[in-house]
Measured scan of single mutants.
Amino acid sequence: GPGLTDLFKTEKAAVKKMAKAIMADPSKADDVYQKWADKGYTLTQLSDFLKSKTRGKYDRVYNGYMTYR
Rank of each mutant, 00 (worst) to 15 (best):
P2H: 12
P2A: 11
P2K: 09
P2V: 11
P2S: 13
G3L: 12
L4M: 14
T5D: 14
D6L: 06
D6N: 08
L7C: 15
L7M: 12
L7A: 15
F8T: 08
F8A: 10
F8S: 08
F8Y: 15
K9N: 11
E11S: 04
E11W: 05
E11I: 06
E11D: 05
K12C: 08
K12Y: 04
K12L: 05
K12A: 14
K12P: 03
A13C: 13
A14C: 15
V15N: 02
V15A: 05
V15L: 03
K16T: 07
K16R: 15
K17Q: 09
K17P: 01
M18H: 05
M18D: 15
M18S: 06
M18P: 00
M18K: 03
A19C: 03
A19R: 01
K20D: 11
A21Q: 11
A21N: 05
A21W: 08
A21E: 15
I22L: 09
I22T: 03
I22M: 06
I22C: 05
M23K: 03
D25C: 11
D25Q: 04
S27T: 13
S27G: 07
A29K: 04
A29Y: 02
A29T: 04
A29Q: 06
D30K: 12
D31H: 11
D31L: 10
D31A: 13
V32E: 02
V32R: 01
V32L: 04
Y33T: 00
Y33G: 00
Q34G: 10
Q34N: 06
Q34W: 05
K35C: 14
K35I: 15
W36Y: 01
W36N: 00
W36H: 00
W36V: 00
W36A: 00
A37P: 00
A37R: 08
A37V: 14
D38K: 10
K39T: 07
K39Q: 09
K39M: 13
K39F: 07
G40P: 06
G40A: 04
Y41C: 02
Y41L: 10
T42F: 02
T42G: 04
T42Q: 03
T42K: 04
L43M: 10
L43Y: 06
L43R: 04
L43V: 07
T44Y: 10
Q45C: 05
Q45Y: 03
L46K: 00
S47K: 15
S47F: 10
D48T: 15
D48K: 15
F49P: 01
F49N: 01
F49V: 04
F49H: 02
F49T: 02
L50T: 02
L50I: 03
K51E: 10
K51D: 10
S52K: 04
S52H: 07
S52P: 06
S52E: 06
K53Q: 09
K53I: 04
K53L: 05
K53F: 06
K53Y: 06
T54L: 07
R55L: 14
R55W: 08
G56Y: 06
G56V: 04
K57C: 04
K57G: 04
Y58Q: 01
Y58S: 01
Y58G: 00
Y58F: 07
D59W: 14
D59L: 12
Y62A: 05
Y62P: 00
Y62Q: 05
Y62M: 15
Y62K: 13
Y62L: 15
Y62R: 07
N63Q: 11
N63P: 02
N63W: 15
G64W: 03
Y65W: 03
Y65G: 01
Y65E: 01
Y65R: 00
M66F: 08
M66Y: 07
M66C: 11
M66D: 07
T67H: 14
T67D: 12
T67A: 15
Y68N: 02
R69G: 04
R69L: 15
